[in-house]
Design a protein around this nucleic acid. Structure first.
Lengths: 159, 159
DNA sequence: GCGTGATCCATTGACGCCCATATAGTCCCA
DNA sequence: TGGGACTATATGGGCGTCAATGGATCACGC
C-alpha cells in the first residue's frame, strides 16, 4: 500500500515525542523521504505531513507561477519558512515543534488522519468535530448526487 | 536535504555575532560556498543570504538584460555593490555589517527564514508580520485556485 | 599601547540515539 | 478450537553528543 489511509490517536510522552503510526511509517519508508515533512495547514487547525509525494505536490503548485512573480515569492516563502523537516528516531517517533503544536492546539495527544498521498495531524477533539462535520457534508453531497453514489465517506466507522 | 526549510530565531551576542542555524549550515556546506553571501533584499526590510545556488540565481537574473544595457549595469551595480561575503567562524557564526543590520532593522535578535535555494534574515517582529501577511495572501490565492478546479491546493480537497 | 577582529575554549541545555518494558495482535501447534 | 509462544508496536527513560552562547586569549594594524 502506498497511500495513507485510516486514522489513529496516539499520546505524546513526557519528552514531547509521538510515534508515527506504523502503517504510515511503512508508506513513508516506501516513499523514500528521510524524515517527516510537516507544515501548518493554511485553512484549518491541523498539520499537513508526508514525504516526497507531498513535496512534489508543493513544487508543482509553486511552479504554476512565473519565476520572480510576487505570488510565487509569497507562496514559496510561506510554505518553505513554515515547514519543518522533523527527524524520526529509531522507534519511528517525532517531536513537534512549538509553532506546529500551537497552530493545531496540540497538548498531550494527536490524531493522525490519512489523506492518501499525505496525512494530517490534529488535536484529537478537534479532529472528531472536523470528522463529524465533514461526514455530514459528504452525506448531504451524496444525497444530492442521488443514485450515482459517487462519493463514499472518507473514513470508516472506527474511532 | 539540499534546501533551506523552516525558520529559526537566534540572538546576537555582545560582540554582534549570531549562529547560523545548524540545518542551514549543513545546506551551505553541501553547496560548497566558503562564507555567507548576503545582501539587502530589494523590496523588503530583510537580507537575502545563501551560497553558490543564490549566486547562480543572481547571475541568471542579470543575464536577462542585454549586455551593456542601462538596466543591466544598474542591476549588477546595485546587487553586487551592496553584497557582502560574511566570514563564518569556527562555531558557525557571522557578524552582520552595519548597513545590513540597518536595512533590516536588526538589533539584538534575528529570524532566519528558509526559502528553498536561499534564506532570508529578518528582525523577528517584522518577520512575524510579514509571514502573517504572506500567509493571508496565499490563503486567498489558494481559495481562488480552488474554485477553478484546475488544481487542488496542497492542503486537502475538502472545503 | 590600544582598538579591532579573529581563533580558541568553556558552559549549558536540548536533542539524537540507544536500550528497556509492556501490551496487543498474530501465528503456530497441540 | 483453544492456548501459548512469539512478534511488533507503542511508550518510557538514560546518556552521550552537538548546538547555541558567552567569554578569553591571541594576532595585527593604527
Amino acid at each position: 500500500m502506498d497511500r495513507f489511509v485510516s486514522h489513529y490517536t496516539l499520546r505524546l510522552d513526557a519528552k514531547g515525542r509521538v510515534s508515527i503510526p506504523a502503517p504510515f511509517r511503512a508508506v513513508l519508508a516506501r516513499d523514500g523521504f528521510d524524515g517527516l515533512y510537516c507544515y501548518p495547514a493554511l485553512d484549518r487547525p491541523a498539520l499537513d505531513a508526508g514525504g516526497n509525494a507531498l513535496l512534489k505536490e508543493i513544487e508543482t503548485l509553486i511552479a504554476r507561477f512565473a519565476p520572480y512573480s510576487e505570488e510565487r515569492e509569497q507562496f514559496s516563502a510561506t510554505l518553505y519558512s513554515t515547514s519543518e523537516i522533523l527527524k524520526v528516531d529509531g522507534e519511528g517517533r517525532v517531536v513537534l515543534t512549538e509553532p506546529l503544536k500551537s497552530h493545531a492546539g496540540i497538548a498531550d495527544a494527536v490524531a493522525f488522519a490519512g489523506h492518501g498521498h499525505k496525512f494530517q495531524i490534529w488535536e484529537p477533539g478537534r479532529f472528531r468535530a472536523e470528522l463529524a462535520e465533514a461526514t455530514e457534508k459528504v452525506r448531504a453531497l451524496k444525497k444530492r448526487l442521488g443514485t450515482q453514489g459517487a462519493a463514499e465517506g472518507p473514513h470508516g466507522a472506527r474511532e
